[in-house]
Design a protein around this nucleic acid. Sequence first.
DNA 1: CGATGGCTTGAGGGTATTCAAGTGACGTGG
DNA 2: CCACGTCACTTGAATACCCTCAAGCCATCG
Lengths: 249, 249
Amino acid sequence: MTQTHDTCRSVPKVGITPEALLATHNLFRHMTDEGKAAFKARARIQRFTRGNTIFLADDPAEWGYVIQGGWVKLFREALNGAEAIIDVLPPGSLFGETAPFENGSYSYGVEVIENVELIVFPLSILKDEAARNHDFSMAMIRHISGKGLAKDKETELRAIQNASQRIGCFLLRLCKDNESGAVTLTLPWEKALIAARLGMTPETFSRSLAKLQRDLDMTIKGPVVEIGDFEALVRYTCSACSNVFPCDN
Amino acid sequence: MTQTHDTCRSVPKVGITPEALLATHNLFRHMTDEGKAAFKARARIQRFTRGNTIFLADDPAEWGYVIQGGWVKLFREALNGAEAIIDVLPPGSLFGETAPFENGSYSYGVEVIENVELIVFPLSILKDEAARNHDFSMAMIRHISGKGLAKDKETELRAIQNASQRIGCFLLRLCKDNESGAVTLTLPWEKALIAARLGMTPETFSRSLAKLQRDLDMTIKGPVVEIGDFEALVRYTCSACSNVFPCDN
DNA sequence: CGATGGCTTGAGGGTATTCAAGTGACGTGG
DNA sequence: CCACGTCACTTGAATACCCTCAAGCCATCG
């Protein structure tokens, strides 16, 4: 019954091969054979351990990355040292890929929060591909637009939801759609990291989770969360959002 | 000396003609002659008065808009009535244009905050143009990427800056670059709206502005702000940001 | 066994919010 | 011309929310 840290928090390690990526990914699969060949020839696997910095904001952007396993955080840092977490990315995510279409520099820094394995590839491949392959450039438009949508929703949530509601929202998104009644799920990362992702301190996270436990029918044991009344959580959380569950993002 | 509301808050009315837009705008100027002809044939001028809703989030997206004069706010609304202001757009801005590349619906609502005059055009023109014109699709990638960058910065500022710093940042962006010493400027909209745009209540805005007046060398008379020591304001504000003034956005 | 790391809990404080009242400018209508 | 209402804004008091600093718990691991 007692699960170890590793199993209970494990998230599907994607471990996708460059070949599979090129065949299935909504962006990469639109590349020409020529581009795919270049990708296969030049893509490399890199590993970084927790705490390492992959790149910093404003670094000249030369490489794009696909996460095969592990987690990274995207952040921006103020002159006074304060840090804003833009996002936390799970396996399967792509990052750095929009830089060549912005100003040629990364717009955020990336740090490893759980040992990662990455596919690294030169951004020139994407840029060249977009320049010559119209189908790919259309896919890139959809790709970037989708990111913009997600950012708008993020802005809304941070503006409107309080700490407990943000946690509730996070939990709901961990569930498959159309759950009801009692649900049990496992937090995918350290609580401190979820807290940062949700824009709060670990202490606030802990207290707000305790509040959810008190007010709604929930039980938390370590990383395992039992939601007694799924609908109640939906009511509590989604009242402070423009979408009702199940929402798409 | 006493300026009326209208003059003191007036902002350059762009009043750009569809022709000029097609010739100069970073996105539109990449259209084919065919697309430009379609635009000219089908673009219309519309006027809306303050308080009117142009469209709501999740409405099917059929029209794109260019602001010739006036101001609008982009917002998302939660079920409980809370409203998150995504952005406030000045004359010259484009909105609704990314919807056809997202899911075909607008991702935010738009409401008029100061009587506007808009160029309205069918989004099918953009979609068709992107489908057949590679140059245009590349321009669209740059266009959307730029928006994404701005959103990341916005996230950073909301996370890191306190109310007074956000106001300071807002004031600095109203200034032309390379100001120094003493500067006088005029708030472009109602204070309550600026407050909402900056993610705070009107009361907090008022108090935080008073604090700036106290702590830095500033004087506020109605919508007129006198900055006594520009550099001091820069120091105070930009310490909580990853950019130093003058920043680009 | 002690050290460590993840997490929780407590106390105290700061910032922003809400609710409420009040001011001053402006316009309207008697 | 003045009374009145409206609107934008300010100010005050009480409160909610979250943060910081600090201590403590507990499981894991060397």
